[in-house]
């Protein structure tokens, strides 16, 4: 009796978890399978669960040619745009946040508290809320359809600033003093000591911010109109909505799979640092 109960108690959590995995993984599986069939198969209302034979063709057409009737740009360009945007956003956010946290924590300047609270308040104003004024400013500065316009408004980041501020405050004051005595000025201390100590935090943040940048939809939709500036997230959306042609589902699926790859790769590559950055408390 007791043993049977024990066995059930052990199996049940696994069943729950497996169900969860299945729910998450099934759409991904469908996308993988969908990309391997001829365009006519899905268009006819079938959704096969076994792979077809058109995989190479689908990916080739997606990456190099693009679905000619809708987006006009190959997915390769979109991937590059998305990657550039996500990289600039992640790196930019980290650089700006590091410097502003450094200023707020280590320097006594007039209105330091005010500056800190203003940064803090922007937490309550994400892009979606301030989208009209931000668009107006970007347009007036002539940033429409440029990479700068795409990334700059998304770079200012209160979250990362706060995170680095918290981290910097745990760095012992004596380390600053030792640096002073060792003849390191403020920026030298920043680069020689603070940056290396923030390495794992930066890695964790980079992963999160890269995915944040990669998944941007609303802002790129507004700021870019040129086809060669399109990001992959918008590209997928445009491929689906067609008024005068059949949606090429196999290419949409292939594009979706391709869109998933870079964030997955980033997570895998930075996994070790990422986890350490989230859990590490030792200084």
């Amino acid at each position: 009796m007791v043993e049977r109960k024990g066995a059930l108690a052990r199996i049940l959590p696994h069943l729950v978890l497996l169900t969860g995995v299945a729910i998450v993984a099934f759409p991904v599986y469908l996308a993988l399978i969908g990309a391997t069939h001829e365009s006519s198969v899905i268009a006819n209302g079938q959704m096969p669960l076994t792979p077809g034979g058109a995989a190479l063709d689908s990916y080739y057409r997606a990456i190099v040619i693009g679905p000619s009737r809708t987006t006009r740009e190959p997915v390769g360009t979109m991937l590059l745009n998305s990657f550039t945007m996500a990289m600039l956003i992640a790196v930019g956010k980290i650089a700006i946040s590091l410097l502003s946290a450094f200023a707020v924590v280590y320097f006594r300047f007039p209105f330091r508290k005010a500056a800190f609270w203003m940064i803090f308040i922007t937490l309550m104003l994400p892009v979606e809320v301030r989208i009209y004024p931000t668009y107006k400013v970007a347009a007036d500065l002539g940033l429409l359809d440029t990479m700068a316009g795409l990334t700059l408004p998304l770079i200012a980041s209160a979250t990362a600033t706060l995170l680095f501020r918290q981290f910097f405050m745990t760095v012992p004051d004596e380390l600053v003093e030792a640096s002073k005595i060792d003849g390191a000025g403020p920026m030298k201390f920043f680069f020689d000591t603070l940056l290396p100590l923030s390495r794992t935090n930066m890695a964790a943040l980079f992963v999160i911010l890269f995915i944040y940048g990669w998944n941007q939809y609303l802002w790129p939709l507004l700021i870019t109109t040129r086809d060669d500036m399109q990001t992959i997230v918008i590209g997928i959306k445009k491929m689906i909505v067609t008024s005068d042609a059949i949606t090429e589902w196999q290419i949409v699926m292939a594009t979706a799979v391709l869109a998933m790859l870079p964030p997955v790769l980033i997570v895998i590559v930075m996994q070790k640092l990422f986890v350490r950055g989230l859990v590490e408390t030792e200084k």
Binding site: E174, K180, R199
Partner: peptide, 20 residues
């Protein structure tokens, strides 16, 4: 005069070694 130019060396209570 700046600490670095005073020609002194200091040993701190928690050692203040650069951990990295």
């Amino acid at each position: 005069i700046e600490p670095a130019d005073r020609d002194i060396a200091m040993v701190f209570q928690n050692y203040a070694l650069y951990p990295h």
